[in-house]
Design a binder for these strands. Structure first.
Lengths: 109, 109
DNA sequence: CAAACATACAACCAAACGGTTGTAGGTTGT
DNA sequence: ACAACCTACAACCGTTTGGTTGTATGTTTG
């Protein structure tokens, strides 16, 4: 299975489509947090929060590093920027700035 | 039921999390298209495409106007920009530019 | 060593999602 | 008038999602 850019876009926008995950992302962008630390902030089980972290991780929006028994998560600002640039591309389509719109519309890369 | 900004964010990111919807959005940002015109571009039923358009409309990413028997859809670039600004806020959290982070983290507006 | 702690993951469940077909209503053109 | 067309929406179906509980494994500390 080839991991296309559309697959990555799907995963990133999906990861961002849940408010708990957006909140987690804010926290780990502000600084490293362990999964249990994050979990205490939400009115749901540890396992649920851990799943949310996993979704963000699979989308590339955060990375985890092991420190003893804890998993420290931190946000990847570059990934956030890459989502921004997808939206900028949309804006450019609107502005008509892209010459070969047909090529863009049918791109499968 | 109060429509919070988090609700809108949920709807927008969810709408953007499907590649067919992102493609539809590109087309209607480039110019007005009827639903049937859009539908011919995809290998799925008219009803499926119509549902995708409805999701984008509910999220505020496109608007429809009636012209006789056809519904002409056009993309709302301001809505796209509002999604961009959500991501910019995330970037600013990372940069530590936001003074009262706690207020932002717990905002319910 | 044993107890407490932090994580990971499987199994399960109700609800939402993304697709289908079918039906119905408004608009256009002959 | 009527056939063709465009849209809207309901009903249905398999899969995914977001939550739960339970179990297993590794790490720290008394």
């Amino acid at each position: 299975m080839t991991e296309t850019s559309e697959d990555r876009a799907d995963a990133m926008f999906h990861a961002l489509s849940d408010r708990t995950r957006r909140d987690i992302l804010r926290r780990v962008l502000a600084g490293e947090h362990s999964v249990t630390t994050l979990a205490t902030s939400y009115d749901m089980s540890f396992a649920a929060v851990q799943k949310h972290v996993a979704v963000l991780e699979r989308a590339g929006l955060l990375t985890k590093r092991r420190h003893g028994r804890e998993a420290l998560a931190s946000g990847d600002v570059e990934a956030v920027r890459s989502v921004s640039s997808m939206l900028t591309e949309l804006e450019e389509v609107w502005r008509g700035r892209i010459a070969r719109i047909d090529a863009l519309l049918s791109e499968e890369t």
